[in-house]
Design a protein around this nucleic acid. Structure first.
Lengths: 198, 198
DNA sequence: ACTCCTTTATGATGTATGTCATAAAACATT
DNA sequence: AATGTTTTATGACATACATCATAAAGGAGT
């Protein structure tokens, strides 16, 4: 996250996206830096037969879609608002100018990318194992520590639909439903009012 | 890759690792920055029943294992030499000093991480589809453009064993062997003297 | 030429997850 | 209250990939 005061020195624009609205599309060139003020955004892919894979979900104060700004490559995934969202945008040139003029920001960009790479590494190893229980537990634990999920007296509430859990782990909804039920029986998590707690 | 001349100003040490030798282990704290002079290194995970997943293979002039240097986290995977290798190391403090004193280097670190994140995103979407043909073709095409595989008159030579292909895509050797044979029949690649060309 | 080890190969069988069908529960909208 | 939509749920069946067993081909070292 870059300080808003700093972004304002580089021609920031505040945009509003409705739920389901597309922010950018896979295979397009990166033109802007995006930082979420409120709402939530998912980055996803669809394979040939329409199946979705969610690369990640981003919330307030997080940025997304930066990597292609530094490469001569297009976006590897789409970005779509999962809720009505308010997003700050600055153009690629202004963003790169900001970075070069503020070395401290580049360190924080490194940290953000390092963090995200860490998530990808953990999930990649997990997804490759073909073990639905592991995949889901890993997703939950990582989401709890990486995202700001709240803890109440039942534990951490996993604020994701079964469908989203599936799309984040490469599993089908039915498999997710069945797996979290066996995980509940094993005492790994709780399901209260259809909500998952860990 | 950071210029060797620059590394030398920050107490670089040149180390030799034999094939199969471990450079660092999963869950350990990051203490050094590593850059390969010659040889090759793989980063991998083993799951509970000993199955391997290769996060990536790195070659001459590439660095690896930087992300945890910027986070208060341990390595998400092991690093192991796949060939006898010569590697430059500098300590974490010296590395962070180098970065802060050389803003241009931090930009190149960003580019490296962005690049790697791009690879992870592409492969994650692919692996989640559960389609062995797609996974392997994606691996080959990405390896060709990202790594420096050479092209000869048969096409690009994929310099990976069947086992490595499997470990990089989360597939078993037998599945890799069978899949690349059907891909050959479909004309997607060539197999000459057991070597894969694309 | 011989031995050892790695890599590639192939067939038989098992199984976890996917697929398809169907529906109840929860929630939103009118 | 009535209606429509999303989310969760459950069963029957199919299938791609894993697993296991076995072996041939190739390379490295003596």
């Amino acid at each position: 996250m870059i300080e808003i005061a700093l972004l304002e020195k580089y021609n920031v624009v505040r945009k509003h996206y409705k739920k389901l609205e597309i922010i950018f599309e896979k295979d397009h060139l990166a033109t802007h830096y995006y930082q979420i003020v409120s709402g939530a955004v998912k980055m996803n892919n669809y394979n040939d037969d329409g199946r979705e894979f969610i690369q990640g979900i981003f919330y307030a104060n997080q940025s997304f879609g930066e990597p292609p700004l530094f490469l001569d490559r297009t976006y590897p995934a789409n970005a779509e608002a999962v809720e009505d969202s308010e997003i700050l945008c600055i153009s690629k040139v202004n963003f790169l100018k900001l970075i070069s003029e503020n070395p401290k920001v580049s360190i924080s960009i490194i940290e953000i990318l390092a963090h995200r790479l860490h998530y990808k590494s953990v999930m990649a190893a997990e997804i490759s194992t073909h073990d639905s229980e592991h995949r889901l537990l890993q997703l939950f634990d990582y989401s709890i520590s990486y995202l700001n999920f709240k803890k109440d007296n039942n534990g951490y509430a996993i604020d994701l639909t079964r469908q989203q859990m599936g799309d984040l782990t490469g599993l089908r909804v039915e498999t997710v439903i069945r797996t979290i039920k066996t995980l509940e029986k094993k005492g790994e998590l709780k399901i209260i009012n259809r909500k998952v707690y860990r």
